[in-house]
Amino acid sequence: MLEYYLQLLVNGLVVGSIYSLVALGFVIIYKATKVVNFAQGELLMVGAYVCYALTVQAQVPFVAAFLLTLGFSVVLGLAVERLALRPLIGEAHISVIMVTIGLSSVLKSLVQLFWGTNIQVFPEVLPNTPVFIAGMPVSPVYIAAFALSFLLFAGFSLFFKYSRLGIAMRATAFDQQAAQSMGIGVKNIFALSWCIACVVSCVGGVILGNINGINAQLGYMGLKVFPAVILGGLDSLLGAAVGGLIIGVLENVCDGLAKDVLNLSGFKEVAAFVVLVVILMIRPYGLFGTHEIERV
């Protein structure tokens, strides 16, 4: 029994780490440009499919394919920013949000156009034999997924804390015009944030593809980002990490509980959103989100 829940916990952490990655992309875009990106899940899907096309259809070795996917995601980020978002700089927020919704449809349709809607499976990259951690079998893919997410998070945290560009991005997020007056090219910062968001989402997509295989529904992962970021705080990197993990664990454990105790299935899909509603009621700026600094 306990083992069953521990297994759910591990599953939750792994799925949660992917949510965290997607949430990271979302938060970076929101922080730097104040755009709520509804296409985050579709970016993940595109990454997964491109990696699939390279490994399975073009027979490129996985590591090379992974790196190529990263390169592709950088280009994708730049293209999306340039073509869809830059023309809207200075327009009302609602218009920009509508554009990201449109973008999500376009990306989804493109994927279906090229690869159809069937489930596709990645070749096995890591061995299938489970590793035992504290007596519990854990698949190596899970460990790799978790480690990779963790590394990316650590890397970006350091980037935002210490690098010149990272600090410039935070400055731009706080006050665009003041950042401009420092000689920070705000347009470049926007492009950079879309790049980063694309890269982390694509990595999430590749990991997810390795675990579950991919289909055209993958984009709905993007919806799970909302509970995660609202739980963590829309503008907090740490919040994205913790929020993603909590949502991942919660939905798996709740789902398990509902099946086990109430004999109900399908609770997975709603658990996260129940959390979302509760959070919005008691702590609308999230666990780690910033309140406005007020001097008294």
Binding site: A171, A178, I184
Partner: peptide, 15 residues
């Protein structure tokens, strides 16, 4: 127009 969520040294790095 200082960057309020950045510390003093980070503000200076922006400069």
């Amino acid at each position: 127009r200082v960057f309020e969520d950045l510390d003093v040294e980070e503000n200076l790095r922006c400069g």
